[in-house]
């Protein structure tokens, strides 16, 4: 029995087929599993292991290295406040304090209603609109306490559901094609190119 929905299973198999080695699909598949379940469940890691032909321990070993992959449940919205240098110079520590108060939880914890998990992040590469806040990896550009409160209100009431999908949903655009260049054709093309190159080199002598 597959833990992935049949739709996700098909997508996962198509993704594995894009890579010369199946194992390379491991991280993309972790993202997809998070998209289905909100976080990376034990069952999903077992299924990813099977799809990538590695052991479940290897999936866990890789997944636990990365900040974006959560092996424990998180809120529907993961709110990240960057406090790195450019944001710090623009009041990020103060905004993070405000966020803790507003959500009523510490960094790394989830609000009582289960909706929000708060994280302090490193630079998110949007330093000109500082301090930088991301929700589920969407840049929401809430730089003041007031804007932050409004953001939380709007998220809680579902007003921004289009812009900010539930946690784990990363790439909403599907790849429309598989691999086009088949190995036999590539070999023929490269051989023709190499011969042409050799002929040019010969002619240049």
């Amino acid at each position: 029995m597959s833990h992935f929905s049949s739709e996700l299973r098909a997508k996962a198999e198509a993704t594995v087929a894009l890579y010369p080695k199946k194992r390379s699909a491991l991280i993309p598949l972790c993202h997809m599993a998070q998209g289905q379940d909100g976080y990376l469940t034990e069952e999903a890691m077992v299924e990813i292991a099977e799809l990538c032909e590695v052991t479940p321990a290897e999936v866990r070993g890789t997944a636990t290295f990365y900040d974006m992959l959560h092996t424990d449940p998180v809120g529907k919205y993961v709110v990240g406040v960057c406090t790195n240098i450019a944001c710090m110079l623009n009041g990020a520590d103060e905004l993070l304090d405000h966020a803790k108060n507003r959500l009523g939880c510490a960094v790394g914890a989830t609000s009582a209603d289960g909706l929000f998990t708060l994280e302090e992040t490193e630079c998110l590469a949007d330093c000109d609109i500082a301090p930088c806040v991301q929700v589920n990896h969407r840049f929401v550009r809430a730089t003041t306490n007031e804007a932050f409160d409004q953001l939380i209100d709007e998220l809680a009431s579902g007003q921004r559901a289009d812009e900010v999908p539930s946690h784990g949903t990363l790439i909403r655009v599907e790849r429309s094609v598989g691999l086009e260049a088949n190995p036999a054709q590539i070999q023929a093309e490269r051989k023709a190119q190499a011969e042409a190159q050799a002929a040019r080199a010969e002619a240049a002598k």
């Binding site: 894009l18 890579y19 390379s24 991280i27 993309p28 972790c30 993202h31 997944a63 290295f65 990365y66 900040d67 974006m68 992959l69 490193e122 990363l170 790439i171 790849r175 094609v177 691999l179 086009e180 260049a181 088949n182 054709q185 590539i186 093309e189 023709a192 190119q193």
Partner: peptide, 22 residues
């Protein structure tokens, strides 16, 4: 993809997401 603009050159490109690690 295959035979780009009819040139006889082919290449596939895959977009690969990171997962949060500097």
């Amino acid at each position: 993809g295959a035979n780009i603009f009819g040139s006889g050159f082919s290449v596939d490109i895959v977009v690969h997401p990171g997962a949060g690690a500097y």
